[in-house]
Nucleic acid binder design. Structure first.
Lengths: 217, 217
DNA sequence: CGCTAGGTTGATGGGAGTCAATTCGCGTGG
DNA sequence: CCACGCGAATTGACTCCCATCAACCTAGCG
């Protein structure tokens, strides 16, 4: 629960979990989505009180992992520790994607980006049928993920359906036009940018100080 | 640069860095802000191509740290590895805050939340003068952080000034009414919630499977 | 059979984006 | 010293995307 101490993490075996934050006026934002294989709650291990809530999107089966094992893992199993770190970094990159989507794109792009992310996850998880994916998210869940209202999510889904891009109904996503979906989503997920735009970097090259690598603890 | 391989991290000594993502239509979103002591670029260490751009907000002095040292750190200096992980988790929590702010609160709350975050950072970094903080962010930077336009950021700053809550001008933040600022920001940063709202958790308690702790690699 | 959660659709309003003009401070060069 | 340019700040007018409110439908379920 948000605000109460949470000395545990969850390793997901089946089902989907979500990590969300509730604001004062009652609104909620889902900050991350977790499918089987994910370790949930890792990012708040060093905090006395949990900042977020973990709840199940669908029925779920999890293993409970105590925070206290982490020290031992780092001391005795460095490869495992590094693996955990990589998983955590993937979560962080996913968070960055979501922030960009919510902060800088309109409603249709956000919903499209979510669909794209779910398809990518499904493929990365070894899923077969690229054109038809079962997803337990409800429209209110989509709204909490995208920073929209469920009413508007509904309209965006209808638009994607009517434009022949994707159909998400009855818990199943069917992408009919992947190229159009990516175009609407508006964010490159993998491809390099054609223009490298240096932005404001040149300004500060003056004060740079290069040292041989080495980390100060 | 976004899309190009980036085999390095930066340890900030002086100045501020930002990590941002550019979308197709030209808009940009700053996903994280880094002050002296931070290690930037850590979250994308395992990726072949960088997803984000790192650029300097002000003139900066940094040390360059190669990604390749990470394996050695994990093998030989577990405490340091754990420290790095904690820093990374703090970044992730900051990202979650920003996502919630952008996704679920209005413009005045986002700007207030940013001010609150900057004040908190300043205090955590051992800053003294609580009522007057020098910050190198320009209004366009604030816009890229909050998912707003610089025009609207300006209006929100004026509103905070006219309401006697905070004054941010000429690169200096002066918080006049911290309580009002926190109220406007709308998100509890530390305090526990009074109401524990179970939300949809009860639904799934049926399928839970508790096992003794232990991690499957 | 009523209850409830979710889905669907329409009407309306407001918050924030967009466009545009003005001002200000600062560095740069004539 | 002043003209010029530029980035940033500021302000106003207008537009539009999305939230809000509200009604209705459907399916599942006790």
């Amino acid at each position: 629960m948000q605000g109460s101490p949470s000395p545990e993490m969850y390793l997901v075996h089946e089902g989907w979990l979500a990590c969300s934050v509730t604001v004062i006026d009652g609104g909620r934002q889902i900050v991350s989505l977790h499918t089987p294989g994910d370790l949930v709650g890792f990012s708040t291990t060093h905090r006395a009180t949990a900042f977020d809530q973990i709840h199940a999107i669908s029925d779920a089966v999890v293993s409970i992992v105590k925070h206290s094992v982490l020290s031992d893992v780092f001391e005795q199993r460095p490869r495992l520790a590094q693996y955990l770190m990589i998983k955590s970094q993937e979560d962080q990159i996913s968070l960055m994607h979501r922030l960009v989507s919510v902060g800088r794109t309109d409603a249709i792009a956000r919903v499209s980006a979510l669909i794209g992310e779910l398809v990518e996850r499904h493929v990365n998880a070894g899923g077969k049928e690229h054109d038809s994916i079962a997803v337990p998210l409800r429209q209110p869940d989509i709204a909490e993920l995208t920073g929209l209202t469920s009413v508007h999510v509904n309209r965006m889904l209808r638009q994607l359906r009517e434009r022949g891009i994707a159909d998400w109904s009855a818990g199943v996503i069917r992408v009919q036009d992947p190229a159009a979906l990516a175009a609407v989503a508006g964010i490159q997920r993998k491809l390099p940018r054609s223009i490298p735009d240096p932005v404001r970097c040149p300004v500060d090259s003056s004060g740079y100080d290069h040292k041989p690598h080495g980390i100060v603890a």
